[in-house]
Each structure stands twice: as C-alpha cells, then as structure tokens.
Computed example of a mutant assay.
Amino acid sequence: MTVNAKQIFVNLPIKNLQTSKAFFSKVGFTFNEQFEDETTTCMVISETIYVMLLEEERFVSFTKKEIPDNTNYSEAIVALSVGSRAEVDEIVNQAFAAGASKYNESQDHGFMYGWSFADLDGHLWEVFYMDESAAEEAAKG
C-alpha cells in the first residue's frame, strides 16, 4: 500500500496563542478561524498544509510525552519550499522583524537556496527555494 495523504496538519506546542498568532501574522501567514478556540489556532501554509498551534496545556492532552525545551533541543525542522530566492529572503526577514531568532546563515548551493529561523517558541523553520532544472543538472554531474 502507498500512502496518499490529502493534507498535512503539523501540531506544535506554543506558550501563548495570541503572541504566536501575532508573530506568524507578521511573517505573512493567515489562520483558519473555523479551527480556533482560546488555546488553539490553525495556521494556513497552503491549500493542503496547516500548522496547528496549541498552547502547551492543550498540546499535552494529545500525548503522554513531555514537551522538549526548544532552546536546548530540536524536535523537528519545519521546511517550507517557496517559489523564489526573493521569497525566501522576504519570509525570513519578516520573521526576524517579528522577533524570530537567527538559526543558520543563508545557504546557497547553486540549485538550492535556504535560510533558517527559530520562532518565538524555539521551533526551527527552514525556508528554501530549489531550482529543479538546476538540481537535475547537478545530479547528472
């Protein structure tokens, strides 16, 4: 059997819903208020990709595991593919202006360009652009 998921919902624990929502709004994301209450919101990444931001008390109701301290540990890196190098820079610079921390310097591999930031709760975000035709050429050697 091959998995053919229609959508993805990434769930991330956050400390404060209003603070996180204000931050991600400044980065340029929107929210589906249909899936929002006083502890949770649904951030729209695309038509099929969403991030559920859940205050920590709500998040732990879904798991028996502890929430890691993202200042010292990495749970995951959320990587977003965008349409251009300029879009990478725009999103990451907006994140920095909204209070994000630098995680890595930008990286230019010719066919792929990316840049990283840590959000207000320490979650790692990688925004990248890949020129698929240049990637194919690089793979050919």
Results as ranks from 00 to 15, higher is better:
Val44Thr: 15
Ser74Asp: 13
Pro13Tyr: 00
Lys21Gln: 15
Leu80Asn: 05
Val60Ser: 07
Ala86His: 09
Ala135Leu: 14
Tyr73Arg: 12
Val10Glu: 02
Glu75Ile: 07
Ser133Lys: 13
Val78Ala: 00
Val127Phe: 08
Thr30His: 06
Ala97Ile: 06
Lys21Thr: 09
Ala98His: 07
Glu90Met: 14
Ser116Asn: 14
Arg85Asn: 12
Ser84Met: 10
Ser20Met: 06
Glu38Arg: 11
Ile67Ala: 01
Ile77Ala: 08
Ser81Cys: 10
Glu132Asp: 12
Glu38Gln: 14
Ser61Trp: 01
Thr71Pro: 03
Asp89Gly: 08
Gly110Asp: 06
His123Leu: 05
Asn4Val: 07
Ser61Tyr: 03
Phe31Ala: 08
Thr30Trp: 02
Glu87Leu: 12
Asp121Thr: 09
Ala79Thr: 13
Met112Lys: 07
Phe29Arg: 06
Leu80Tyr: 05
Met52Leu: 12
Met130Pro: 00
Ser81Gln: 14
Ala22Glu: 11
Asn70Arg: 15
Ser20Glu: 02
Glu132Ser: 11
Lys15Gly: 08
Glu87Ile: 09
Gln34Lys: 10
Glu55Trp: 00
Ser133Asn: 11
Lys26Tyr: 02
Glu66Asn: 13
Asn93Val: 04
Lys26Pro: 01
Ala95Tyr: 05
Tyr50Pro: 05
Phe23Tyr: 09
Ser25Thr: 15
Gly122Glu: 10
Ala97Gly: 03
Ile91Ser: 08
Ser74Met: 13
Asn70Ala: 08
Val10Thr: 15
Gln107Met: 14
Glu55Ile: 01
Asp121Cys: 09
Glu55Met: 01
Glu56Leu: 01
Glu57His: 09
Ala98Gly: 03
Asn72Ser: 12
Leu124Gln: 14
Leu53Tyr: 02
Asn4Cys: 09
Gly114Leu: 12
Gln18Cys: 00
Ile77His: 03
Gly141His: 05
Lys26Trp: 02
Val88Tyr: 02
Leu12Cys: 02
Asp119Trp: 01
Asn72His: 11
Ser74Asn: 14
His109Cys: 07
Val44His: 07
Val78Asn: 02
Ala76Pro: 01
Phe59Met: 08
Phe111Val: 05
Thr2Leu: 12
Tyr103Asp: 14
Gln94Cys: 13
Lys15Leu: 06
